[in-house]
Write a protein that binds this DNA or RNA. Structure first.
Lengths: 155, 155
DNA sequence: TTTTTAGTTCGTTTATTTATAAACTAATAA
DNA sequence: TTATTAGTTTATAAATAAACGAACTAAAAA
């Protein structure tokens, strides 16, 4: 694969990151910025480079960058005697990805507990299914923490 | 808790289900229908009952119900000599919830593998982080399947 | 045959999101 | 002092999504 080919593919992947994050409820521009800072070989971009690279307006860039910073997804460093900000993705903890899913499973379990509490008949079809789901979720939520420990000790 | 209180709380929870599913990218109406069929003690609703209960137009109901049926989330039964459809939520397999999360983690791993493949320097800061994340995701994806077996045999 | 029931389809309205351009600000450089 | 840089803010335009009402259809009932 030539270098240009590789860069072309990287840029394609940046675009598809926009779609990925769109589905997650982010604005596409924010997703593309995350993609840019993750995928390209260059790991730090200035405001103007982002505007130029993604072909977006300064206001879109300003909005998306502020949102991403507040959401703890990107950060910037500065250099003495240089007013520019150098944006980069925040290095996440190894477990952030699974932790996010764990916390969503937890929310689901809490919701289902709520639903079950409000059921008049705890033996109706839905109630039994919900009890089953809660039991399974509790098992997985427990084991998740064990898996994290096991993973670290295994290294 | 009186019966009216319980029903009021159930209806509140139905509304909040609309918001939950909105965040997941569903239309609020669809979310409220899922809520209705999951939360209320009555487990089967006709088209008109749904329209009445959620105070929505027939066209909204029609659209949302068709979408939910195609998405395999609800189903309906019919009775001989009765043209009405009786809608109910589809009973999911115990593991559906965790499987959904597993498959999202898998997508993330595949995406990161893609990103890593396209990196010019596999030892850059981002590349190393990505390798770490992939390794951890692979571990969890494996263990997930084991956990499912363990859960079943433990019963 | 006409009416009622159980929905579907279509065209429009309303609300929300996303992005823009243009004007502005605050700091630095010339 | 004036110009330039590095963005921010604001007001608006464009696109998209969600829901609605009204007209329609197909089957069954009267």
């Amino acid at each position: 694969m030539t270098s240009e080919e590789r860069i072309r593919k990287q840029k394609e992947l940046v675009e598809s990151t926009g779609c990925m994050y769109d589905k997650k409820g982010f604005q596409p521009t924010a997703g593309r910025i995350i993609g840019l800072l993750t995928i390209m070989d260059k790991e730090q971009y200035t405001f103007d480079e982002i505007v130029e690279e993604l072909q977006i307006s300064k206001s879109s860039a300003s909005n998306a960058l502020n949102m991403l910073e507040i959401s703890n997804i990107i950060e910037y460093t500065t250099l003495p005697g240089d007013r520019k900000r150098y944006f980069q993705i925040k290095k996440v903890d190894k477990f952030t990805l699974v932790d996010e899913h764990r916390s969503k499973l937890k929310e689901t379990r809490d919701f289902l507990n709520n639903v079950l509490d409000l059921k008049a008949n705890k033996n109706s079809g839905n109630a039994i299914l919900i009890k089953d789901l809660i039991d399974m979720l509790n098992y997985f939520l427990d084991k998740f923490e064990e898996l994290k420990k096991d993973y670290l000790s295994q290294k």
